[in-house]
Write a protein that binds this DNA or RNA. Sequence first.
DNA 1: ATTGACAGTTCTAAAATAGAACTTTAGGAT
DNA 2: ATCCTAAAGTTCTATTTTAGAACTGTCAAT
Lengths: 154, 154
Amino acid sequence: MKWDALEEEPCSLARTVAVIGDRWSLLILRECFLRIRRFDDFQSSLGVTRHLLADRLKKLVRFGVLRKIPYQDAPKRYEYILTQKGLDLYPIIMSIVHWGNIHMVDSRGRPLLHEHKNCHKMFDPVMVCSECGEPLTAKAVHVHPGPGARRTIA
Amino acid sequence: MKWDALEEEPCSLARTVAVIGDRWSLLILRECFLRIRRFDDFQSSLGVTRHLLADRLKKLVRFGVLRKIPYQDAPKRYEYILTQKGLDLYPIIMSIVHWGNIHMVDSRGRPLLHEHKNCHKMFDPVMVCSECGEPLTAKAVHVHPGPGARRTIA
DNA sequence: ATTGACAGTTCTAAAATAGAACTTTAGGAT
DNA sequence: ATCCTAAAGTTCTATTTTAGAACTGTCAAT
């Protein structure tokens, strides 16, 4: 299966994976949320090759996750900032970070702590149901075909 | 940078990406949450090559996300089921699905709908602060170095 | 004895990635 | 005028990963 085929699948996970489902895209997005915006800053903080960085930035712009904004005129230079579509990736990034915090830390503990500006406390992200507000678990969810489901073959 | 190097980074996102940060691992996990458990079922529902499927399943077992459970004796056969560590990936999977539902659906709408068994309603996942319960946004979060932070070079 | 299911393994060709060097545009120092 | 530096890429070759198909081994059923 080729990468482009993923975008066409009748599956919201597959289509999202087509956008962010590779290692460098996710690491680039991490940097974006940490306020990194410029090519060389991405390159030096990530250690990604310039070739791949250029490729992934182009792809993220194409998908509308990042936007190029000029920050100087001569020579013309741009920085990459998150669009609203990109900002909406925050729950994905945070849930990835949280899983790593729980399951992948070494003896020294968490690399980063997160403070919520609303309540001024260090927090963890919790995923809840939009309707009843209870925390979600896989076992408490039942899946139904939606309007965009693939029609059954037989 | 090599894949193994990711696991050593002082970053919970990078370490998680070392486990699930590739296209097939994420798609395999989707199937796991949809109750797929056996090699040939993964293979036919995903269209992944058998080679890569075997490789990824091995890796997910090695990281403790899946476990092989015998389901028949002659010949010895196993199925792959999510461990607690694997079940804890649910918020990641759901937030990926949700982003796709919002930003990647075509005119036909969502491929799947999710019903919460607690409240019997179709829901969306919402990420909230563990301390105050308010929905989280990137702009409302401030990051601090934690105990496992990389010491500054200079 | 032959066929089929299941769970892989092996093989070659094609694609993606790593790593380093090179290019372009322009400002400032000598 | 010439050289040096900065930023943002682009180009090149070698290595690694992936795709796609065929093959292997174990056992049950016919």
